[in-house]
């Protein structure tokens, strides 16, 4: 990759502690414009927590996050205002709103009509509503849900709910899109369609950071992949580099990974690999087992 691009997102030394538990430990992270970056790691590694630190849902214990050079305040609505949009691991649509209304809510930061203009309904209000609706319909067209604009979000099938979440996030005209397990629970066709969708979004000039357990999906899509294990960034590099790294495999299989792998540790890893001989080198088996109730 000839990357001489500007950084969109820069996280410096981000740490998140919950009481005694350090969920994210001094993570440095950069996403450059036009990039698709994958974030992988075993369950409970702290990926979602890291996302929450980036988007202001959690106030990081230490460290700071900046977007295009300005430091972000840890307030979710200001982060979105600045230009970072996200989806959630456990779909968080507005279930009793229609598909169109969900996307319209996503337009919140890019419109400014307040209560008074809503009550007075001047020409400016009507124009703004119309523009919002048009833009939202474009997005629904883009993800292929335009024909369901008046369905309640709760009545959509799972895969379409995930897509709708992406459309809702795109409605805020972000410069960076964070996707938390966008293919969780999808069948292979839907996953492939999502792949196309992510590329199409990148082609619009939006940088993408995505968490995934489906390794094939991540390595296909990403320009760069970072591995988070027990809150620490273990490896970062191109898909080839990460795939080849034995520590990653070890981490996924639950073997201790302290320091550089010594000879006996390598042996251990190999033994483990031999044990789990059904497992593919990449741990795709994980892809559907990761939806946990209480995480964001």
């Amino acid at each position: 990759m000839t990357t001489q691009t500007t950084p969109v997102l820069e996280a410096r030394d981000v740490t998140m502690r919950f009481g005694g538990l350090t969920a994210v430990r001094s993570v440095d992270f950069t996403v450059n414009s036009g990039e698709i970056v994958g974030l992988i790691g075993p369950n409970g590694a702290g990926k979602t927590t890291f996302f929450n630190c980036l988007t202001g849902l959690y106030v990081p214990t230490e460290g700071k996050v900046s977007y295009k050079g300005t430091v972000l305040p840890p307030k979710p609505h200001l982060v979105t205002q600045a230009g970072i949009a996200r989806t959630f691991q456990n779909i968080r649509l507005f279930a009793n709103m229609t598909v169109l209304e969900n996307v319209l809510v996503g337009r919140h930061t890019r419109t400014k009509e307040g209560l008074w203009s809503a009550l007075l309904r001047g020409p400016g209000f009507k124009k703004a509503e119309k523009a919002s609706e048009d833009r939202s319909m474009e997005l629904l067209d883009f993800i292929g849900l335009a024909h369901k604009r008046d369905h309640l979000a709760r009545n959509l099938p799972y895969g379409e709910q995930r897509k709708l979440e992406i459309a809702r996030a795109l409605a805020s005209e972000p410069g960076l899109l964070l996707l938390d397990e966008p293919t969780a629970g999808m069948n292979p066709q839907e996953t492939r369609a999502t792949e196309e969708l992510v590329f199409a979004i990148r082609d619009q000039g939006i940088a993408i950071l995505l968490i995934e357990h489906d390794m094939r999906f991540v390595f296909n899509l990403s320009d760069r992949v970072a591995v988070l294990v027990q809150g620490e960034k273990l490896v970062e590099g191109t898909p080839q580099v990460v795939q080849a790294d034995e520590r990653v495999v070890a981490a996924y299989l639950g073997t201790p990974f302290e320091g550089a792998p010594g000879a006996d540790e390598v042996a251990e890893v190999e033994a483990a690999e031999a044990d789990a001989d059904t497992a593919t080198p990449t741990a795709t088996a994980d892809s559907t087992t990761s939806t946990r109730g209480e995480s964001q």
């Binding site: 849902l57 609505h77 996200r86 968080r92 996503g106």
Partner: peptide
């Protein structure tokens, strides 16, 4: 939570 993440 989702609403605040949408910029509200």
């Amino acid at each position: 939570t989702a609403a605040t993440a949408m910029g509200i």
